[in-house]
Structures are given as C-alpha cells and as structure tokens.
C-alpha cells in the first residue's frame, strides 16, 4: 500500500505542473480524487485490511491525501495566475501623453472673484446678485447722482430704446429708461430695498461703459463691491476691512492707504492704494486698486433707512484690474478672447 501511495504522489507531482487549463485540471483532479479516482480506489481497499493495520494505513492515506491536495492547489493557483496574466497587454509606456483633453480650467476672472468672495465670506459677507439691465433709478437716482451728471450721458452709458420692455427688471417709475448698469452699486440699492439692516454683502458682477476697447479698457468689465450696513460703523472699520482683504490676498506685508476722493454715494470717500511685494510687472510703490467710503446719508434715505440709526461703508474695485495685477497680465482684451494658451495658465 505504501508503495502504491508513493507512486501515486510521484505521478501527481510529475503530471500536475503540466496542466494548463481549467478543464484539464478538473479532469486530472477527477483522476486522483474523484469518485473513480486512484486515491479513492486505494481508500476503498482500507475496508479489507486487518483491524490492527487500519490506523497505520489510515495515517498513510491521510498523508498522501494532503500531499496530493498541495499539488492540486499549486496547479490551480498557477492556472489562475496565468488566466489573469492573459488579460494584460504589453507593459505600458508611462511617458506617452494621455490623449484626452483637459484638465478643464476656471477663467482667471472666476478665480479672482471666488478668492475675493472666500476672503469676504470669512468675515461674514455673503454674495448678492442683481440684474445687468438696470433702470436709471437703481443705477443713478438712488445713488445720489444728479439728473445732469455726466455719467448718465448717452456718451458714457448704454441705453435701450424707450419702447424696450424687460419683464423681470423692475422699474421705480414708468418713465425711467432701461440701461446697462455702469457699476454693481445698483445691487446694493436692490439689496437694501429688499431687506432690513444689518447687511453685509459682496456683489461681484458685470458692468458696462460706453468706452473704446484698448489694453486697459473694455466695453464690459467686472466689478466687485462690498456693502456693510449696521449701527456705529466707522471709517476705521472700513480701513480694517481693506487691510484684512489685501493682507489675505497678497500676504501680511501688504499695506493699504486711503486718499480722500469724491463719489456721490459715499461721504467721506477715498481711493484705495496698496503696496505689496512680489507683484509681477509692478514698478510703482503704491497701486490704485479701488474706491470706498462711508455710505452717504442720502443713499440711506433713498432706501428708507434712517441715517440717524444706520451707518455703513462701501468698497468697490475692478476685477480685471485685480487679476491683471495678481497675474501680471498687461492687456485686458486677453480676458475676452479665450485663447486656450491664456486660459490654461491660471488653473
């Protein structure tokens, strides 16, 4: 019996490594351990042995069974490996470029706008929006712009024909003309009319000036304005906000300064300059970046807020100008051409 078992194991050791496929394997397995297999046949002989030999032979058979199973397992593992290997092609050349387009890119104006909104959100400003087609009231009257102010002139502002009707742009009075907003300050008016103070909004958006397009001017461009209305708001608070914004954007060494200026809707009014290291293509120590001031009491009166109770500040700047400064872009027209060689540079 022992010889027969040894011979069987040796045969399996020789035969199983040559098995290549699953059907061959199943056949081989059946030949050894199947109901009619050779090991099964030997096990059946156990019944005819004398009682005292049974434990010895039983042990031998068990050993043979384990040995055989090891050979079978090895063969099966080898076949499974071979099957997986067959699914693979030749090794890749990792240096070949991916043939897909991409990645997609955010426009630099979006990047700058979102960065500003994030900075402002941290100090409690939320983003407000309003129509780009506006009326004279929201764009000028409510902002303390005199009736014969040059900004209203047809030379400088785009108007629509008197017969135009914009279904979802509300008018204050029927005789007002529709126009393309010249600043996003109209959003401040609409926000104040819609809600109650305190208010803290940032309104980024597209504005229009009737202007010749050149390296620094564009018929439409983007502004970003902040409006803060609360009790006891001061010039110092306004300065603190500007310091915070530009230190967040450009680094801790950034400084801002206010120069007194004039805007109809703020009093006092200032122009804001900043100085920062590491700005590309900047040669002057101070760069003008925007305008700001304390909301003029006339504006509060126009929206029905009591100027004795409420005070506030507003700040506005051009997004193209900021993006040009941050990235060192020297021609505003690049923003509107969408040359992929431009778009891919920023994100």
């Amino acid at each position: 019996m022992q010889e027969q078992l040894s011979a069987l194991l040796a045969k399996a050791a020789a035969e199983l490594p040559a098995v290549k496929t699953r059907p061959e394997f199943e056949a081989a397995k059946a030949r050894y351990v199947g109901p009619h297999g050779e090991l099964t046949a030997l096990m059946k002989q156990m019944g005819g042995l004398p009682k005292e030999q049974k434990p010895v032979v039983g042990k031998l058979i068990n050993e043979a069974k384990t040995g055989l199973q090891t050979h079978l397992d090895a063969a099966l593992a080898r076949i499974a490996d071979a099957e997986l290997a067959a699914q693979l092609g030749p090794a890749v050349d990792a240096t070949l470029p991916a043939p897909d387009f991409g990645p997609g890119t955010h426009h630099p104006l979006t990047l700058v706008r979102e960065e500003m909104c994030r900075i402002l959100r941290k100090v409690g400003f939320t983003v407000a929006d309003g129509p780009e087609v506006e009326t004279e009231y929201y764009c000028f009257d409510a902002l303390n712009t005199p009736a014969d102010h040059p900004a209203r002139d047809e030379k400088d502002t785009f108007y629509f024909p008197a017969a135009s009707r914009f279904g979802n742009v509300s008018k204050k009075s029927p005789e007002e003309k529709y126009l393309l907003r010249t600043h996003t300050s109209s959003v401040q008016i609409r926000t104040m009319l819609k809600g109650e103070p305190p208010i803290r909004i940032v309104s980024p958006g597209r504005v229009y000036r009737r202007d010749t397009t050149d390296a620094t001017h564009s018929a439409n461009f983007h502004q970003l304005e902040c409006l803060y209305v609360d009790k006891n708001v001061t010039v110092r608070d306004l300065k603190a906000l500007l310091d915070y914004i530009f230190a967040s954007l450009l680094g801790k060494d950034t400084k801002t300064r206010f120069r007194p200026h004039y805007f109809g809707y703020t009093e006092p009014s200032f122009e804001v300059d900043l100085t920062a290291s590491h700005l590309p293509k900047v040669k002057k120590p101070w760069i003008e970046i925007g305008g700001c001031g304390m909301v003029d009491p006339t504006v509060f009166e126009a929206v029905g807020y009591d100027p004795e109770v409420w005070s506030g500040y507003a700040f506005g700047m051009g997004l193209e100008r900021l993006a040009m400064l941050l990235y060192g872009i020297d021609d505003i027209r690049y923003f509107y051409q969408n040359d992929l060689r431009f778009l891919k540079q920023f994100a």
Binding site: H106, H107, E132, L180, Y208, Y336, N338
Partner: peptide, 17 residues
C-alpha cells in the same frame, strides 16, 4: 462651472454685447 471644469471644459468669458 465646477461641474463643467471637472469635466475638462475650459471656462470662457465673452462680451454680453
């Protein structure tokens, strides 16, 4: 915009007029 950029689109800005 985030969806489109995430799907390999390049965000453009064109004039309204």
């Amino acid at each position: 915009t985030d969806y489109l950029v995430g799907h390999d689109f390049h965000e453009c800005v064109n004039y309204t007029l």
